[in-house]
Every structure is written in structure tokens, then in C-alpha cells.
Nucleic acid binder design. Sequence first.
DNA 1: GAACTTATGTCGAAGATCGACGGAAGTAAC
DNA 2: GTTACTTCCGTCGATCTTCGACATAAGTTC
Lengths: 399, 399
Amino acid sequence: MTSPGDVLDLISRGAAETRADLVRHTGMARSTIGQRVDALIEYGLVEETTPGGSTGGRPPRLLRLNTRDNCVIGVDLGATHCRVALMDIGGTLLATREDPLRIDMGPLPVLRHIDTRMHELLAETGRPLATVKAIGIGVPGPVEFATGRPANPPIMPGWHDHPIPEFFTDRYDVEVLVDNDVNVLALGERRYAHPDARHLLFVKVGTGIGCGIIADGRLHRGAQGSAGDIGHIRVPDAGDAQCRCGNTGCLEAVAGGAALAERLTAAGIPAEDGRAVVDLVNQGDPTALRMVRDGGRLIGDVLAGLVNFFNPEAIVVGGVMAHVHEPLLAGMREVIYQRSLPLATHRLTVVPSRSGELGGALGAGRLAIDRVLSPGHIDRALAHRPGATPSPRPPTAAR
Amino acid sequence: MTSPGDVLDLISRGAAETRADLVRHTGMARSTIGQRVDALIEYGLVEETTPGGSTGGRPPRLLRLNTRDNCVIGVDLGATHCRVALMDIGGTLLATREDPLRIDMGPLPVLRHIDTRMHELLAETGRPLATVKAIGIGVPGPVEFATGRPANPPIMPGWHDHPIPEFFTDRYDVEVLVDNDVNVLALGERRYAHPDARHLLFVKVGTGIGCGIIADGRLHRGAQGSAGDIGHIRVPDAGDAQCRCGNTGCLEAVAGGAALAERLTAAGIPAEDGRAVVDLVNQGDPTALRMVRDGGRLIGDVLAGLVNFFNPEAIVVGGVMAHVHEPLLAGMREVIYQRSLPLATHRLTVVPSRSGELGGALGAGRLAIDRVLSPGHIDRALAHRPGATPSPRPPTAAR
DNA sequence: GAACTTATGTCGAAGATCGACGGAAGTAAC
DNA sequence: GTTACTTCCGTCGATCTTCGACATAAGTTC
């Protein structure tokens, strides 16, 4: 009923620190728990620390994830930057490095860059390569998650159908997970800031606008993996603004960072991109401020509909434009709470992302950690480990 | 690794008809499969039929669900009608009955009516009461699914927080599941018409407009159980039509059956409600036809956004207005395929519901069947059945 | 330091699962 | 019609898993 993986899950979530805790949570026999814990320790994912404080009896032997011998790499690939983070499987950031890097150089130079950085970070922190159990990568475009291949990504020329995982699995004994950057952000935000949220939307407002969807605690990728593409939803008050997608009135065309910069420039205040708009707001420019707030209202209009449809308990806003989250979220909240149904907004929270610049890399690392710690993964690893069942069936094979 | 419930699942889905099939599908030992099947037969959910045709060797003993001794009740409650259906656990409709019934009479008269009809249907088909294993009920309002209590339903006065399941569980040994009518329709449609669809939207266009969401094969109910309420999403071209919810520009206020009837009446063609509009279209009235098509476009506008967001593989349209699905779906498709992203519409199908008038009751019955056949349910039932573990622990209890 | 509390390891018994064996029940060929 | 072959299924002992009871460890409280 309860597998070794579930035991690990309780330990990793901090729900159980001792064998006795595990017994209480799982209802399994002490002996069974002891055996499972031994297996996990032998396998190297769990370790014992110093005895804990007594509560009137023998002090328990505290258990925790073996963060010394198990780490992951999280990679955040953007159009023009690459951040690589080394994390242990407890989710602690050990070292990170960001470089400008044009993703349109194509797969091989970019992947080699990641490989180099990974080795540097390992060397810095004195961790052997073999401690890297998985690599998570967030990319700015649609990906077929199961195979880790980008699917006609508009801003990643040369990457279509490139088998990203193979680059690493051919060289090292690791698992590699590739996903859309917004999905990765949603995953990270949920883990680090909203661990109890079962239904969450992560809205990234950068040059474009995208959305990561967590439904019932798991990422919703949709039938073709294109779910969350809210940037091209038509907005009621958008007028006929032309969008790069060919349609008019898209959310992205009126409320994305690039659109705001254009409009600001047209209004006589030169702004190159979303970041420039952010800077202007921070400098107190009233026109930029109003524009960001209006953009928030437009995004809020779309989100109000999605709140009715999806009924999330939290909306988290990230991306470059969230650096000025006061006006942005004010505009969004204003429309959402007015337009959505009371039942749906009753316990809804609309908050800025807490993960900052590191969000993408941390989320990608979390994707990798989740894989390493997933019950199914552990059960398989433990079942196939040498010595488990010393192959008592040569007779079958012989005949 | 594979539980008795999984064995039942394979049988109920038609994926395995013989013990040998089960061995091939599960990879388990013949002896284990035999033991599990015996347990399921003894428990009464599975039975053996006549030997099947030989394929060159001993003919297999065919297995199937024991539909004779296991049935469920599906109930479709509307504002002014009540349909009760008796189905076996294979999903076959055995008998059904519809009556006009005002749901605003309050819980007790309505539930007593259902109880009476249930007994009549059982008598008609000669099935004992004890063969009813579960009851599924779809109601026209929001429900807290876990407890089966309506949550401030607007058109069900007196039902708020009423514990519907208790009415039946106090009298009989059954499980009772209560859900929103649109959710129930979505569930039924998926099972009967789109068994392979993992992500599906069921759009009900009646007096109002609602949507049942199937995400990754399971119903998405959202944080407060209000997911799918798309009737009050703002539509770009809706103008300032006043909606009963207090806002303006809601989809329901411009494209629902009631709204179409009003507008048709205002145009000089009297129509009392959505059904009257349908009748007019069927009589060839060009104004009504145009209005339905325009309504389809408006709904399509909202759905185009949801397709981008959710990326379903199928949209199924039901409800009264779907009786004239040619113009309705034409309008919807026109906008969806124009506005949504190519990747998301590539394999998207937009089709009318196939379940007709019986859809609600069949879906509610399916909800009940799914519970009866759910792996977890079976595993528990088999573990607790008398004789499984003949209580080998009097010593513990004695001390 | 005796009594009590809490935590953990050990061990035999019961249960679950497996592979091997053999019998059952057809078809195909002579 | 009898022999060979194929497929299906039940039985049985061996093995692995899980459990509960017992024993032990290591603290606190008085």
C-alpha cells in the first residue's frame, strides 16, 4: 500500500524526521519502515544526522535527505541569457552563474556552454560529477515534454526537434527534463512559495505574456503541450492593435513589455523594451506608471475570464514587468475582483513572484529534483539495485 | 505493483477479456491473476461467460463485469425536470423515466421523488434493491463534491448545504455522489463518445452557458468547485448587454438561450426561451438562424481563448441550443480556428454532444459506476472482506 | 538510580507473489 | 480417430514482503 518512494516523499517534504514519525504517518509496521529507511540510506538518498532532542524518552535518530551526495542542475535559457544553477536535492541553491548567450546560436554551442558551466559550478563547490542526478532545463518555447524536443519554437531557430536530453545522457548517467520556461517557473513558485496550492496560475509578463498552469498539484501541459499560451487571447478593449501572430487585439500586443515600450515611445517617451519601461516607472515617470497600470487592467480582463473557467486559488505574477508589481497587480486585481464570480475570487490571492531573477533556474532544478525523488523513480531504482533479488532464475533463462 | 483494482479496470475497459489477456497486460504471474480474478468473482463484480472461440488451442474462459448483480442509479436534476436512469455497471441503460419536477420545492420532496422512481425502475426490470451499488446525481448549481452539499445554488432555494447523500445512505447501503450537471455531462460524454480524450471541454449552451472540464482524464473542479463557469466571461463584441449577475457584456447575456430569445422577441419574432428559438430555426426562420450563428461566434470567441489557455483535444457542445448544432458550431468553429494558435487547433475537434436528452442521467450514472469500479474502492473492499485475514490478532486485543 | 517514556533493532509467522509443472480443451494433419 | 500442437488455466512449493511481539537502547523525572 505504501511504497519506499512514499517514505522518501515524507522525508523530503519535511513531514517526517524520524522512523517513528514515518510509522505514525504511514501506519506501517516499525520493522518495515526500518527496512525501507535502511534501503534508502544504502541507496544514498537519505542519511542520519546527530540524535535529536529527547521528548521524555530515547532521542530519535533524525533522518534527512542526503544533500551532500545528491544534487541537480537547473538551467534557465532565455532568448539572450543562460543561467545555470547547482542545487542539492533539498532545494538549496549551492552556486549559480548567469551569462549573456544568444539562443539563436543553435543547440550545440548553447548545450556546450551549459556543460562547461556545470563543471565549473561543481568544481567551485567541490562536488563530484557523479553527484549530479538530474538536469532540468527551461527553454523559451514549446517543448514535447516526454522527449525533451522543442516543437517549432519561434525564437529558437535550429532547435526544432533537437533531442536536448541526449546531449547529456550520452555523456553522463543523468536524467534530463526539458520544459517550457513558464511551466518551470510555475513549478518552482509552487514549491517554494505556495506548497499547499493545488490549483495555481503563474503569469509571466515579459516581452510577451505566458502562463504556467498547475492543476491538482501537477503541471497541465495540454494535448499538444501548448497550454498556457494566453498572450494571444483577444482582449475586449484592445482595439485593433496588430500582433506578431497575425491577428489583432491579442493581449500580448497591448499589454506585453514590448507593446508598452512601443506605446510609450509613440507617446514621446523613448523606451526600448519592457525593462526600459520598468526603469521609467522606478524613476517616477507618470505616463509609464499609468501605462503599466492600464496593462495590468488588460491582463486582468483576460485573467478574470480564466479565474471563472479554472478557479485557481492563487495567481502568481512574474517576468520582467513584475519588477513594478505594485501598479501592475493593482490594475489586475481591480478587474479580476470586479469581473470574476464571488465564489471564485473569495479565497483567490493575486501576488507577485517571490523567486526573482533566479526563478527560472530554481524551477528547472525543482523539476529535476521532483524526478529524482518521485516515488515511481525510487521504487524502480530500489527494485533493480544489485543485491535486491540476486537473480534466482537462471533455470528459466537457460531453457 | 499492480493491484486487484487494476485487474478490474482492465476488464471493465474491455482491454482484457480472459485471464491470459490480463497476464499479458499486467506482466503478473498467471497464478496471481487467477487468484485476483477469483476474488473479484467471489466478490460479485466479475463473472465468467461461455467459453470463447479457440485460436488454435484451448478456448479461453471469457470474463466480464457482472452486470446482472450490479447496477447504479443516475439522476439528472434540472430546474423543472427530473430524470432517473437505472444502468448496469457496464454502462448499459436498463430503464429511465423523466418527469416535470420543480427543484425549488426543496430537497425533501425532490429526493423522495427520486427514491420512488428508483424503486419503480427496479421493479420494472426485476432487479433487487441490493444490486444498486451507487447513486450519481447531477444538480443545476455548484456543489461541494466531497460532501455532496450544494453551495449557494442560485436556482435551488432551500438546498444550500443540504447533505444530499445522507438521504440515501441513511436508508440504503449505497454510495452517493453529487456533482454539478455540467461536470456530469462532461464525464458521460468522455466515457461514451471520447474514451481516449485526455483533455476535453464540454460546453453546455442552454438558458445559461457552462463548461465541464476534463484535465488529464479527470474532472477539474477548481479550488472552490466553481471551475467551468464560463457564462460570465466578458466577450469582446458583447457591447453593454446587462447580465443577471450584475456585470455587463457576459457571454451568457448575449449568447445564452434566454438572451437569444429576448433578442429575437425584440426583433419582432416572439420567442419565449431557448427551445422556442430552436423551434424557429428548425422551421427555417432566417432571423433565428442568423442569431444562433452569431451566438456561436460569440461563444467561439470565448472558447478561442480557452483553447489557447487549456489546449484541449476536443470541445463537445451540448444543451438545448445544440439541437441546432449546424449553425451554432459553424459560428464557433469559424472563430476558434481563426483566433486560436495553429498548434492548439491542429488536432482540435469541435463536435456536438452525442448523448442527447439522456446525457445528464447517463453521465451521473457514469460518475456512480466510476466510483464502484475505482481501483482504490475495490482494493479496500477486497482487503476488508470477511475471510480475507481471519483476524489473527486476538493476543494484541486481549492485552 | 528506579521508574517511566520514547525510539529502534531482531526474529519468527503469516501473507503475497512467483515460476514450474501438469492437466484441460480446443485445432490441424494424417 | 488418433497424434501432435497450441492455448488456457489451476495447483503447489519456494521466495520475498510485511507484520507483530519481544528485546534493547537512551534519554527524562523524581
